[in-house]
Design a protein around this nucleic acid. Structure first.
Length: 576
DNA sequence: GCCGTTTTCGGCCCGACTGTTTTCAGTCG
């Protein structure tokens, strides 16, 4: 069987962490980290290299690690990894996940205080025991507590990119069962919320099907603790840590049930209020008229039609004024993934990407895109292999060569330039002017006040060479809060300066948040769905960015990368 | 453990930030 590159890279990275937690020499640790990176980034056929005994031609792989990889190819595992795992306390691997607590401090609390879980660590903090340790103090203890609180807050949530395919798999699984005639994903996943605490599936079943459902769910892999709070409802905890809700509806009630369990509380409350105005009721999966008769509904659309509304796409059903728009038949025609003509913001092997420039161009062409904008990191981002002036020249030359050979997908030479703490960029204007476009992003000095940060971003947008503002709030979903920012002022500045705002489509970011998209649209700010890809597969992250745009009520016209090439090129140059 | 116009050991990626120190260690991006 072929080796799984990503799994092998993760295995080596975990070995590095285990070695560190076992107190090994830091250079050995670094060697394993380097090997993990090298494997993850390598585009060569690992199985072929193994068979021909050439694993050591990869920089960062020497004799010892090549032997580990050979073992992995043969057996699918690495014995030394197993051994390391048995010598290192499992709780240490948990403890280092706490932000602010690295390997050294995790080892210290484990060794000196006997802390063996996150719960114990929290207790030790509350008892003020951390400050007694060497190198620890009041502030470190506070930081650890904050880190734990932070982790707890995100427990029980999944990223949309994880919850969505999981929900679809569950629905498909249920549909295969006897007696269940339909199964549709509803809830937050159907509304494409950035993070999800509960997967909701609406199932169509007769009485016989309903009777078997508890057994089906109990037997389903990845499902724990099935309960049934009501007759037509089952709840379960999924092993991934979020909950599953299965609502059962009879054939004639299915459309209304799907509608009631898709919209958020506010959306559904507004629907009920509208029904009430006609002396109808909308409950228990039925729309009942004033005479107490169920109104026949063939599909979800019928409910909205009967209530005098045009059909709101599921993404919009957040109770943010969509009902009022639907009543006036003024809902926007939402952008779709197929509307995209290209994409900006992607990294290559010139900085921290895993795919070559040529491979990214090829991948974009196979997606039917007619342009892409390459943006490797700038020189301040040393940790990400930011480009020197010489590398910028070399990349530009390669892009020109590729464009000469492949006219169907135009490659634009851009850069993701760091916004320095004072709001200036990390290349002078004459260098920035050489790029086809510039994305300006914050990657350092996060801890500024709201006023400082707002001023910093505004200054960057006032630079005529800054085409787009990258991931405006800096948030990492379920991991790092957005930095404080006066977003209204940022959007206003974007409008005043003609700066495009990125909707970073990485499922870890989804930044700009959908709630701000409408404000941007109203101010006439152009947005761009940017994959922030570090490899070929991540180009497909645009579907999450399109989901954000749709939730924000954006049409194709509100986005840069739905434009045909000439239009797009004009917009890229409009500030210059 | 990896690498090498340094061939066989000695150096290994960087800078900011923070907190705990009183000159530096740990963490992070």
């Amino acid at each position: 069987m072929a080796m799984d590159r990503q799994k092998l890279a993760e295995l080596l990275a975990t070995m590095a962490l285990l070695l560190e937690l076992a107190g090994e020499n830091t250079f050995k640790v670094r060697a394993y980290q380097g090997a993990a990176r090298a494997i993850g980034k390598s585009t060569e056929d690992l199985d072929e290299l193994y068979r021909s005994g050439k694993l050591e031609t990869i920089k960062g792989i020497g004799r010892a690690i090549a032997r580990h990889i050979a073992e992995y190819a043969e057996t699918g595992t690495i014995e030394e990894y197993r051994q390391l795992k048995s010598t290192v306390a499992p709780s240490l691997l948990e403890l280092v996940k706490i932000p602010g607590l690295g390997p050294k401090k995790a080892m210290a609390v484990h060794a000196a205080l006997g802390v063996d879980s996150i719960g114990e660590l929290e207790y030790a903090c509350r008892e003020n025991r951390l400050i007694a340790l060497n190198g620890f103090g009041e502030k470190t203890q506070q930081a650890v507590l904050r880190g734990i609180e932070y982790m707890k807050k995100f427990q029980g949530s999944l990223l949309l990119a994880e919850a969505w395919p999981l929900a679809e798999r569950i629905a498909a699984y249920l549909l295969e069962q006897d007696g269940l005639t339909a199964a549709r994903v509803a809830g937050a996943v159907r509304r494409r919320c950035p993070t999800v605490r509960e997967i909701v599936i609406v199932v169509q079943a007769d009485a016989a099907g309903l009777a078997t459902l508890e057994g089906i769910l109990t037997a389903m892999p990845g499902v724990e603790q099935v309960t049934s709070p009501e007759t037509s409802c089952f709840q379960a905890v999924l092993s991934v840590g979020i909950s599953l809700l299965v609502r059962v509806a009879a054939l004639e009630d299915f459309p209304a049930a799907l509608c009631l369990f898709t919209g958020n509380d506010q959306h559904v409350a507004e629907l009920r209020r509208l029904a009430g105005e006609q002396e109808w009721t909308l409950a228990d999966g039925r729309l009942v008229n004033a005479d107490g008769k169920a109104v026949p509904l063939a599909a979800e659309e019928d409910i909205y039609r009967k209530l005098g509304l045009s059909y709101p796409e599921p993404e919009l059903r957040e109770g943010q004024g969509e009902i009022a728009l639907a009543a006036q038949q003024r809902l926007p025609v939402l952008v779709q993934p197929g509307d995209l003509r290209g994409a900006f913001h992607m990294h290559t092997t010139y900085s921290d990407g895993t795919a070559s420039l040529a491979a990214m161009g090829e991948a974009a062409a196979t997606r039917g895109w007619s342009y892409i904008g390459i943006t490797d990191h700038s020189r301040t981002a040393v940790y990400a292999g930011g480009l020197s002036l010489e590398q910028i020249r070399a990349q530009r030359q390669e892009i020109e060569r590729l464009n000469a050979n492949r006219p169907d997908c135009l490659i634009l030479a851009g850069i993701e330039s760091d916004i320095l703490p004072d709001g200036s960029l990390d290349y002078p204007d004459d260098i920035l002017a050489q790029f086809d476009f510039v994305i300006a992003s914050v990657h350092s000095a996060f801890r500024q006040s709201e006023a400082e940060k707002t001023k910093r971003l505004k200054k960057a947008m006032q630079n005529r060479y800054v085409t787009m503002l990258g991931h405006p709030t800096g948030r990492i979903l379920l991991a790092r809060e957005e930095y404080p920012l006066d977003m209204t002022e940022i959007i206003q500045t974007a409008a005043d300066t003609g700066t495009i705002i990125e909707i970073n489509a990485s499922p870890y970011r989804l930044d700009l948040d959908w709630t701000w998209c409408r404000v941007a649209r109203e101010k006439g700010v152009l947005l761009s769905v940017n994959p922030d890809a570090h490899g070929v597969a991540e180009l497909d992250s645009v579907i999450y960015g399109v989901a954000v745009a749709r939730k924000g009520g954006l049409t194709a016209a509100n986005l840069l990368n739905t434009r045909e090439r000439p239009d797009m090129l004009t917009l890229l140059r409009r500030k210059r």
